[in-house]
């Protein structure tokens, strides 16, 4: 049995995304030297939304790339099957840019560690910030904290946070699922 609890509904998600965009604008002004990097596979939906909103507000194009962390992960060979990679698409230079990494859920921090590694293979950024929709608190394995947070939640290790997007054929929403032993 799995129990599902709605933690963000479509209306709230839209408000949250707008707030995140405005927080980004506070720090990055006209986005002159700033680029967005969405993390594959699930962070790219959030990254696309953030970009669309920013472009509406600024009426200009914001550079967005997709970064896949598979080959930089630290759990290769510790799993039974090899990790399956996704497309990396970084159509700009990262050298001396302000990079905003975007992912849907921050949990142990290991994906972000891998992402930092993967990112510097494209050059040396001036600064790097992290934006997440959901920050799971007290679950970190590494000293990594987000700069922009959609919502912080307290979770157990046995729970999962599920982010669904319209683009995947669902309703925009975030769920907390709990496995229940019978």
């Amino acid at each position: 049995m799995e129990q599902k609890k709605l933690i963000i509904n479509p209306q709230l998600l839209d408000v949250t995304l707008s707030r995140l965009c405005h927080q980004l604008l506070e720090n990055h002004d006209r986005f002159e030297d700033t680029v967005l990097l969405g993390l594959q596979p699930r962070g790219i939906f959030l990254a696309n939304r953030i970009r669309r909103k920013l472009e509406q507000i600024l009426s200009k194009e914001i550079p967005l790339g997709y970064l896949d962390t598979t080959f930089h992960r630290d759990d290769f060979r510790r799993r039974t099957a090899p990790l399956k990679a996704n497309t990396t698409y970084v159509p700009f230079l990262i050298e001396d840019k302000k990079v905003i990494l975007i992912d849907d859920v921050l949990y142990t921090g290991r994906t972000i560690r891998a992402a930092l590694d993967a990112m510097i293979t494209f050059g040396r950024p001036r600064t790097v910030e992290l934006l997440v929709l959901i920050n799971r608190k007290y679950t970190r394995h590494l000293p990594i904290e987000p700069d922009y947070i959609g919502k912080a939640v307290n979770t157990l290790d046995s729970q999962r946070v599920l982010v669904e997007w319209q683009e995947q054929g669902a309703e925009d929403s975030v769920w907390l699922t709990t496995k229940q032993d019978r």
Partner: peptide, 8 residues
């Protein structure tokens, strides 16, 4: 990529 190496 500019750096053509991954640590896998």
């Amino acid at each position: 990529r500019p750096i053509k190496k991954v640590p896998s």
